[in-house]
Design a protein around this nucleic acid. Structure first.
Lengths: 206, 206
DNA sequence: AATTGTTTCAAACAATCGTATGACAGGATG
DNA sequence: CATCCTGTCATACGATTGTTTGAAACAATT
């Protein structure tokens, strides 16, 4: 792809994620991308379309989908749920991630613009289907509609640690916050959720 | 208090909550408050201090605290947890609320500015203490540090339905979304969480 | 009635915003 | 060589931003 255009997209994604749409200026984006001010309007027409393109490029959820299909059938539903939850935490809290992809995504999902619907259909719904497949094995007696709230309860626990990081940090203190790690958090949420579904707290580690 | 100043504060809170700090213009705020453009700088010095004042005035959590102390000791811990969760849902999803208080609050907690720390200490921590008191009775064997994750798991479930409303609406469809109500949601989260803590799914309604 | 301090007003300030323009460079095609 | 298309550049446009100004209006006190 065009070099300037992709540099522009990267810079835009990072700054949009950090400051939000309004606070991010076209000039700052171009400066970070080592591009001229007119480059945005040349390649994307206007600022809003640059934002939409940046959201579309933030396919952080797709990186999650790629890792999942490996455990086809040899794992128990409990182990698959554990993997699913741990993968969510890794995607959100890992320090080596391209960083702005997820942030821009969640910013869009909390305050939806025109790009939200596409994000949900392309990335969120496939992930929701995967979770529902796991819940299908864990709670055979439930109807389709009864499984949504359970999925929301699980995902809500995980997202809480990402969306409300500043609250957690202030509540439990910086020192205690730094002791949190992906493994411990995933283990807690898995144990909590499995118990909630009436599953024995047996071995769910892979 | 001064009339223009409080009208300015109300208008600012509403617009800040709706659009965010950057997208909200001083002129629009003054227009809604029927005040002159110079009124903001006269009463608050600058835009940022008006925002801080608006956040401070958004004491939505305090309205929750007022209702809680009624159940002193005559209710079971299960019933108290149910009330706590239902009260959270009512505060967040009720249509008759002053509307912008909570929105501004959560906006601040997700993307903290200088006003965040005060909000946490004044309103969030007292509420967290109340929840921890309930959990104290529900899980006697646990240490102080082990109770934080359980509280986060409960609050995370509730907040998910507020923060990610647009996702839910798109995932389950508008029709199914409109059937959701405070009672059903509170009942689900309560049942889910009590089961997760190993409590029998007995009668928790007041 | 005169004076003081407080509040409101229209108007203007400099700065920054997103966007548009026309010129210039490079390579491919005829 | 001439032509066309694409991409980059400096510059400037009009609009909007937060903030300031100085005068006018008001209320209260002396």
């Amino acid at each position: 792809m065009d070099d300037t255009k992709s540099r522009l997209l990267d810079a835009a994604g990072a700054i949009f994620a950090e400051k939000g749409y309004e606070a991010a200026s076209v000039r700052e984006i171009c400066q970070r991308a080592n591009a001229n001010i007119a480059a945005v309007n040349y390649h994307f027409g206007e600022k809003r379309q640059l934002y939409v393109a940046a959201v579309r490029e933030a396919q952080c959820a797709q990186t999650m989908q790629l890792k999942l299909p490996r455990w086809s059938g040899e794992l128990t539903p409990e182990q698959r749920l554990h993997q699913y939850i741990r993968l969510m935490f890794e995607t959100m809290l890992a320090s080596n991630r391209p960083s702005w992809h997820l942030e821009l995504m969640l910013r869009e999902l909390a305050r939806p613009t025109e790009a939200c619907e596409a994000v949900v259909e392309d990335y969120i719904r496939p992930m929701a289907e995967q979770l529902k497949a796991i819940l299908n094995d864990l709670t055979p007696g439930l109807t389709e509609d009864d499984r949504w709230p359970i999925g929301f309860s699980i995902v809500g626990q995980v997202l809480f640690y990402y969306v409300h990081q500043p609250i957690i940090r202030l509540l439990i203190g910086q020192a205690a916050y730094e002791t949190l790690n992906v493994e411990a958090l995933a283990a807690h949420v898995t144990r909590f959720s499995l118990a909630a579904m009436g599953r024995p707290a047996g071995e769910s580690s892979p």
